[in-house]
């Protein structure tokens, strides 16, 4: 579904990604672990095309959508408008009606049923997270890139995010999730890759280990 071959990226003097190779199968979740500054966000940004790698290849089948650490909901639109704006650009009357129904159903399933008409400024962190996820699901992406989905969330909300992402995976969406939260990553991912100074230092299948977080910590 998604394949990186020897991808490198340099900002000025700093080598941010150093010959990174990896692959993700369809409907899988790949976890990107690593300390702050290890290159997780840059890797995601390269996949989306926000940054151009200096060398290497990225192979990607299907539509990619990015979920930002700070969500980047459109502040001047209410939640429903945030969801339907992009799909409505390619739709006419009856298709727009369908988009709205789809958006409302999605919001309801994410527990945001009563927030359709609220503006993003009035949502909590967890609600914004869910709204951003709903907005990307509206364009039927094949791959979702998720940057630090648990940052700023309390433990309860993190548990919500986990069940939410599992539910998204069950729709057949492939995900790459960048996070410095090892407990969260090892719980949700089929495969966790640890980045350090832009290089992959270890790759594990969390289910094969008793305490995958502890294992990863040794490589931090």
């Amino acid at each position: 579904m998604l394949k990186l071959k020897e991808v490198s990226k340099v900002f000025g003097e700093v080598v941010v990604l150093d010959h990174v190779s990896l692959s993700v199968a369809k409907s899988g979740i790949l976890g990107l672990a690593g300390a702050s500054g290890s290159g997780k966000s840059t890797l995601l940004r390269c996949v989306q095309g926000f940054e151009k790698p200096d060398s290497g290849e990225i192979e990607c089948n299907g539509r990619v959508c990015f979920i930002f650490q700070d969500f980047q909901l459109f502040p001047h639109m209410n939640v429903l408008q945030n969801l339907v704006y992009a799909p409505d650009l390619k739709a006419d009357g009856s298709a727009r009606q369908k988009n709205e129904e789809k958006a409302l159903a999605l919001l309801k399933s994410l527990g945001l049923g009563d927030k359709a008409n609220s503006f993003p400024a009035l949502l909590s962190g967890g609600q914004k997270q869910r709204a951003a996820l709903a907005r990307s699901l509206m364009i039927d992406p094949d791959i979702i890139l998720c940057d630090e989905p648990t940052s700023g969330l309390d433990v309860m909300s993190i548990a919500d995010v986990i069940s939410l992402l599992r539910e998204v995976r069950s729709r057949g969406v492939t995900m790459v999730i960048a996070s410095h939260d090892l407990g969260f990553l090892t719980e949700i991912s089929e495969k966790v890759i640890l980045l350090k100074n832009g290089r992959i230092v270890v790759e594990i299948d969390p289910k094969q280990h008793d305490d995958p977080s502890k294992l990863l910590t040794q490589y931090y």
Partner: peptide
């Protein structure tokens, strides 16, 4: 306007002209 607003629009497949008209400019004007 934060760079992320432009990138979010691009990520959602919103064409440039609509991005300026419907996403960026309303925020700028405000």
């Amino acid at each position: 306007i934060p760079n992320g607003q432009f990138e979010a629009a691009i990520s959602l497949g919103i064409p440039k002209n609509r991005m300026w008209r419907d996403i960026i400019m309303p925020q700028v004007v405000k």
